[in-house]
Each structure stands twice: as structure tokens, then as C-alpha cells.
Design a protein around this nucleic acid. Structure first.
Length: 262
DNA sequence: AGGCAGGTCGGTA
DNA sequence: TACCGACCTGCC
């Protein structure tokens, strides 16, 4: 099986960070879906120094092409030693978030996940996404497929989307034969991508910034959720212009860890 | 028991 | 522009 030496990397920390809802825990690792691809990931060692094993979903070897894809997906082609060094976050924040990286997810996966996520909680979001992954044969249903699934009233009701259902239907309809311009051109600004996404009902600034950060590679995008607003209010946090999104993930983990206590 | 959860929308000032 | 209540659901 393909093995990758890692530093500043933890599968468990990433899985718990609330940035991805297309991972499912298995006996000895994670069954991961991204777009129409799937793989099995496991890790030995810890966030500071470890080894990640990449296999096909059926346990077989991956070829070089697939390995390159997952290497990028896991942000292992990004220099976190440099970035974390320059972000210079307090040690306490670094410790709580140890091993978190911002994944390079499939944009559609993130669009579906974060429309589902609005005003909800992580347990519930994951349950809905698990049901969608199952319905999609292990991968998130594509736009056309999702539209069909949601048109089935019994299935749609079983997802318990509440008022998010029409939002997801609108997203599916809009994304048939369409994707953000960012995927075609590198020169699309964050503001332009945000505006483009916010044309879809149910996508506001928070969800749009999550899609931009997790699914479109804008590492400067900072999703403003309730925890982050509190961090700004109570701790006067400011955001790095280049990697604010990475910083946000660490602050998010730190705030949630602190919030658990009280 | 009931506030709150990785928000967004439409209405009001 | 800025603020407010409503909104499905169910965790904690």
C-alpha cells in the first residue's frame, strides 16, 4: 500500500474539525469520498510525525495517479511548516488543533455539506451526509442525481432537512452543467466566487466562504460562524490575509474545546 | 425543559 | 446599512 510520511498532520484531528462530512469511520481508519473518488486512509504515529496509508476503498493498491490526487486532497503538497510558523498562533491554540490541515475538497461535496450544515449541529449534519453518501453508493450524489433523489418525497423527508430542503433542491438544479468559474480560471477573486455562490438561495456569506475555503482553494477565506464571531469579540482575533482560513480552523477548534467546559 | 447548533431570509427602521 | 424574528430538527 502507498505510504506517506507526514508532519503537522492528523487524520483524526481533520475528521473532528468540522470541515468535512464525506468521511466515514471504519475499524482501522477512514473511508473517504471526494467527488466520484473514494479511498481508505489510516495513520500511524501522531500529528507531529506519522505515516499515512492510502488504499482503494476495496483495500487494493492505489496507482501513482490516484496517490497524487489524494496527496493534494490531504494538503500534503502545502508547506504547513512555513505557514504555521508565519501564523505564529499561541501555543495553546496550536496544541488543541494539532494536525489540522485544510483539505482540498471537491467543490460540490462542500456545497452540499454546508448547505445542509446551516443552523444545525455536527452530529446531525453528519447523519444527513451519511444518508446521502449511502444513497450515492459511497459518494455524494452529483447535481442531477441529487435532484432526482430529492424529488422522491419519501427519501427527501427521511433526510430531515427541514427548511433546507428547497435550498438543496435549488443548488442541485443550478449545478446541473454548471460549476464555479474558479475551477476554470485561477484569476477569479474570492469576492467574485462568493458572489457567484450566494446567488443560490440558502447560500449566504458563511456557507459561501466554507465552499471557497474547503472546496475552491481560497486559503484566505474566513468563515464567520458563531464560534469565530465569539473569538473576535472576546479575544480580538484578527485574520492573516493569505492563510486566514487555516488560522480559522485552529481558532475554531480552540474555541469549541474551551466552550465544551462551560 | 429549553436554549442552542459551523445561518439565511424577508421585513423594518 | 444594520438589526430582528422565524425557521425544521434534535443534541446536550
Amino acid at each position: 500500500m502507498a505510504a506517506i510520511e507526514t508532519t503537522f498532520f492528523s487524520l483524526d484531528a481533520i475528521a473532528a474539525s468540522g470541515q468535512v462530512f464525506t468521511w466515514q469511520r471504519t475499524e482501522d481508519g477512514w473511508l473517504v469520498a471526494s467527488g466520484k473518488r473514494r479511498c481508505l486512509l489510516s495513520q500511524e504515529g501522531d500529528a507531529e510525525k506519522g505515516t499515512v496509508c492510502v488504499r482503494r476503498a476495496n483495500g487494493d493498491e492505489v496507482d501513482a495517479n490516484e496517490l497524487t490526487y489524494w496527496h493534494h486532497y490531504l494538503a500534503l503538497d502545502t508547506d504547513y511548516v512555513k505557514i504555521l510558523g508565519e501564523l505564529a498562533m499561541p501555543e495553546e491554540v496550536m496544541d488543541v488543533g494539532a494536525g489540522i490541515r485544510v483539505l482540498a475538497q471537491d467543490w460540490w461535496d462542500t456545497a452540499v455539506s454546508f448547505v445542509v450544515s446551516q443552523n444545525s449541529n455536527i452530529v446531525r449534519i453528519q447523519r444527513t451526509m451519511d444518508a446521502l453518501l449511502d444513497a450515492g453508493g459511497g459518494c455524494a450524489p452529483g447535481p442531477h442525481e441529487l435532484g432526482g433523489l430529492l424529488a422522491n418525497d419519501a427519501f427527501a423527508t427521511s433526510l430531515k432537512l427541514g427548511y433546507r430542503r428547497p435550498y438543496l433542491e435549488a443548488l442541485a438544479g443550478r449545478a446541473v452543467g454548471w460549476h464555479p468559474a474558479r475551477l476554470d480560471r485561477r484569476d477569479v477573486t474570492l469576492a467574485e466566487s462568493m458572489a457567484e455562490l450566494e446567488e443560490s438561495p440558502g447560500i449566504g456569506p458563511k456557507v459561501a466562504s466554507c465552499i471557497c475555503l474547503f472546496g475552491l482553494g481560497y486559503l484566505e477565506a474566513v468563515p464567520h460562524d458563531t464560534w469565530i464571531k465569539r473569538a473576535e469579540r472576546e479575544h480580538h482575533v484578527t485574520w492573516d490575509a493569505r492563510w486566514g482560513g487555516i488560522q480559522q480552523q485552529y481558532v475554531f477548534a480552540w474555541m469549541r474545546e474551551k466552550g465544551r467546559g462551560k
